[in-house]
């Protein structure tokens, strides 16, 4: 089960939330919409993963594919609320070296807006 919630689409920053499991099965349910709500908007995007319970390499690949696409448009993806097992999985592969992690939405907004300055 995976849920993608759009929290806001401001003029400069999008804010979405992933909830549940991001694995081989759920990826097929969410990847096209996730791309549409993030990379396709070409705006910096905050992705709240505080309620993401499980992530595999395919899910990490989805995040990085969109992050890379955003970078091509001088925008960034910022992960917020990373914790527990998901945080371990992301850090295991060095995700924090590629995508900024923020402790809260305020910090994430600052990082997202600084990327455009």
């Amino acid at each position: 089960m995976i849920e993608l919630e759009v929290l806001s689409h401001d003029s400069d920053v999008s804010h979405v939330k992933l909830k549940g499991r991001l694995d081989a099965v759920t990826l097929r349910q969410v990847d096209i919409r996730f791309h549409g709500e993030t990379a396709a908007r070409k705006r910096s995007t905050i992705v709240d993963i505080s309620e993401l319970d499980f992530i595999t390499s395919l899910g990490i690949g989805m995040l990085f594919g969109c992050a890379k696409s955003l970078r091509r448009h001088d925008a960034v993806m910022v992960l917020v609320g990373s914790k527990g097992f998901v945080d371990n999985a992301l850090r295991t592969v060095g995700a924090h070296e590629i995508i900024p992690f923020a402790a809260n939405v305020e910090d994430a907004l600052r990082v997202a807006r600084e990327s455009r300055s």
């Binding site: 990490i60 690949g61 990085f64 592969v93 590629i98």
Partner: peptide
């Protein structure tokens, strides 16, 4: 990760 692909990530 920078390639935006997940090939090989699972093995890693």
């Amino acid at each position: 990760l920078e390639s935006g692909k997940s090939g090989g990530l699972g093995v890693a």
